[in-house]
């Protein structure tokens, strides 16, 4: 019972903290670039503003366009609530293992792309085409890096994978390092961050994700943007879970929960600072360099797999 409560608290936290975290990244970036920034609360203010605004919709938008924000949002939130953030063994984590989690995100992307095509503007189609193409190229790398971890844990279930990492003695795992790098590269691409896409630009030559949601307004736009923020937090929580789960609560007593909550926030914030650093230090890639970037991620993940077999199983 208590773990169910923790589960709901955790999902709620993921939902509520996601805009704060997006604001945190933006602020970090601003500071790194000698600007003041709008503050961590700005995404929340934006959302509130959008929620209270009227929805303007193209005259021939179909029901796909109207339902897509809800599908995108619920699929992303569903995926997020499956990922353990504080407590290792949550009841909902049984719903979907890592592969099903990726599929839930694919569902949300599918509807996003369809919504992009629905209005029939050149921008929407462009965004949909690019998003689906790059997602397809990123998928093998993502899967391969998940494979590396689940090979040693003999599981794709998040709870078991975390338990495996928590219970095995500390050792250097080159394969995990490779998998982590590949995962970080894919996570940048999946979340539409620099160097793949720039979430703050509306320049037609460079945008991918923004091009798809260009026609949205009001609460629909708010849902879409909120979903994107939740996705960012979801990915960072996933990376934390898979690669550095130390400190997560194994049982539901209050002290370890509080400790796990604090550690989770710290770890995620650390990742976000790294993201801000990376985004400040890197330039956006040319569009047709992205495939090379993603195939690089795949090669690294495959190297992880090979070094797992060569160095860690062979002995």
């Amino acid at each position: 019972m208590r773990s169910a409560l923790v589960q709901f608290f955790q999902a709620g936290m993921l939902l509520l903290l996601a805009p704060l975290l997006a604001g945190f990244v933006a602020t970090c970036r601003a500071r790194l670039q000698n600007r003041r920034g709008a503050g961590v609360m700005q995404p929340w203010r934006n959302l509130r503003k959008l929620f209270s605004k009227e929805v303007v919709m193209a005259s021939h938008a179909s029901w796909i366009f109207r339902t897509a924000p809800y599908v995108v949002f619920t699929a992303t939130v569903m995926a997020a609530s499956v990922v353990p953030a504080m407590l290792v063994d949550t009841p909902l984590s049984l719903i979907a293992d890592v592969i099903a989690l990726v599929a839930l995100l694919a569902l949300s992307r599918f509807f996003q792309a369809l919504a992009g095509m629905d209005i029939g503007t050149a921008f929407g189609g462009m965004g949909a085409s690019r998003e689906m193409t790059f997602a397809a190229l990123g998928e093998p790398a993502m899967l391969m890096s998940i494979f590396v971890i689940s090979l040693s844990a003999h599981s794709t279930n998040l709870t078991s994978m975390i338990n495996h990492t928590l219970n095995s003695p500390f050792a250097l795992h080159p394969s995990l390092a490779f998998a982590l790098v590949a995962m970080l590269l894919v996570a940048l691409a999946e979340n539409g961050r620099i160097p793949i896409d720039n979430p703050t630009t509306h320049l037609e030559l460079t945008m991918i994700h923004e091009a798809m949601i260009l026609e949205y307004s009001g609460r629909h736009l708010a849902l879409m943007e909120w979903a994107a923020m939740v996705k960012l937090l979801l990915f960072s929580t996933l990376i934390v879970d898979l690669f550095m789960p130390w400190g997560m609560a194994v049982n539901t007593d209050a002290i370890s929960l509080v400790q796990a909550f604090g550690l989770w926030l710290l770890k995620v914030a650390g990742l976000m600072i790294a993201l801000a650093l990376a985004e400040t230090g890197m330039a956006k890639l040319r569009l047709f360099d992205v495939p090379e970037y993603l195939s690089g991620a795949f090669v690294i993940a495959f190297l992880g797999l090979l070094s797992f077999y060569m160095l860690e199983v062979g002995a």
Binding site: V55, M57, S59, T121, F123, H202, L214, E215
Partner: peptide
């Protein structure tokens, strides 16, 4: 709060 229909914005 209903939805207002209009021409597509298209940037």
């Amino acid at each position: 709060t209903n939805v207002r229909r209009s021409v597509a914005w298209s940037c």
